[in-house]
Amino acid sequence: MRRGRFIGILVTVVAVFLVVLFAWLLQGKQIDVLNPSGEIANAQRSILLFTLFLSSLVVVPVFTLLIYFAVHYRADNKHARYQPEWGENKVLEAMWWGIPIAIISVLGVITLQSSHSLDPYKQLSGGKPLEIQVVALRWKWLFIYPEQKLATLNYISAPVNQPIHFSLTADAPMSAFWIPALGSQIYAMNGMESQLNLKANEIGNFTGYTTNINGQGYASMKFTAKITTKKQFIKWVDEMRMIKAEMNQAEYSKLAIAKSETSQRTYRLTDADLFQSIMHQNMSHSSSDSDEHSKMDHSTMEMSE
């Protein structure tokens, strides 16, 4: 049949063209998720590749059978067998219930295991974590270093190979904190505190984003994670401690208005309770909402632990 051959040629030409196109597009691209610089992101990449492999156990047969059946059982192939009343076969059906069940069982185990091992709330090994408090604002990121008594706008500085513990809240519509090169994202919400543990294992500047739409300045709301050596980090802290600009309730109020801000700034933290007070100001005025409640309480959600 002429049409069949035409379709065959068309499909092949288009497929080759697309493969070439995407190979060309991928040239020299930095793909953070596949080529990460953090411990968590590395582990996530391994799971991604293994899951892709497991999926291919189904996908490859599906595509092969689709093409083979389409070509072989086309109406004008008189050599092909035709059995119009054949519609059941227990063995075959058991096979394609069974194989996916087996694959999903393996994946299920990985899922359960990795949900725990890569839980963003789980503290990472490798020494005492650096504490950073994160406030998502309209539309900028405020970072507070409670131990170094510093605050930064739209950038963080952190040492390589040391765990970082982020506590996150928002004074804005729900936002999300994501540094693709380092791994895992987490939502930041008004009056609540969520947590994230990351660890960089390479030096460099990595971009972070909000992934959840939070109003006009959403697209410009980015920050840089500057990962340096331990020495450089200590030097940075010492230098910044000399800086004039202060971060306290008054300065914060000026910052917390609905306005995009993309510049990177550093402040000395002069109000140790700033993060807590930002969280509380967005919390309910009703008395029943105690501190315990407003945190996204991990322990109550997980009965088994």
Binding site: Q44, T51, L107, T111, S115, S117, W178, S184, Q185, T211
Partner: peptide, 15 residues
């Protein structure tokens, strides 16, 4: 299926 693995979803969600 990739995104159904929570550990992976943390890396691709809302992207």
């Amino acid at each position: 299926v990739l995104m159904a693995v929570p550990a992976l979803d943390f890396q691709v969600h809302n992207s």
